[in-house]
């Protein structure tokens, strides 16, 4: 990932910052500029999610993408935040301790790195609450 692209997404990754639309009262993560439901009538404001949520579904990764080989097996899940948005995240837990519907909370972890010389990328993952 390019240095500039990660830097632009830094705030939303470090702290789960997205949007709330005052018109339809819906919440969005990752952040977007216009409300996809209200369009022109949307009134978007910045919103910081608490990060509390539950695990909707998950899969155990045994054959990982480049740079994540040393972490297998690990859990990749879809988390539904209390306010509604869903996002994909690594779940920090032993595979046998993970189950659908369990409550999760956010943790600050290393997301990856651009080789041995590049930037280190940090952000939010989830763990059983």
């Amino acid at each position: 990932m390019s240095v500039a692209r990660f830097w632009r997404q830094q705030v939303q990754r470090y702290n789960l910052v997205g949007n709330h639309c005052r018109n339809c009262d819906d919440y969005y993560y990752p952040p977007r500029t216009t409300c996809p439901f209200c369009r022109r009538n949307g009134e978007m404001e910045e919103y910081k999610f608490s990060g509390k949520g539950e695990l909707v579904t998950y899969t155990i990764i045994h054959s990982a993408a480049e740079g994540f080989e040393h972490q297998t097996p690990y859990v990749l899940g879809i988390v539904k935040l209390e306010e509604g948005p869903r996002l994909t995240s690594q779940i920090i837990a032993q595979p046998e301790d993970v189950n659908i519907g369990m409550k999760v909370r956010p943790v600050f972890r290393k997301l990856g790195e651009s080789g041995d010389k590049g930037m280190l990328h940090y952000g939010t993952k989830f763990t059983p609450a």
């Binding site: 040393h70 920090i92 280190l120 940090y122």
Partner: peptide, 11 residues
């Protein structure tokens, strides 16, 4: 953990 370092612990 594999994704923990001085930064994540400090945060």
């Amino acid at each position: 953990d594999l994704d923990e370092d001085t930064v994540t612990i400090a945060v």
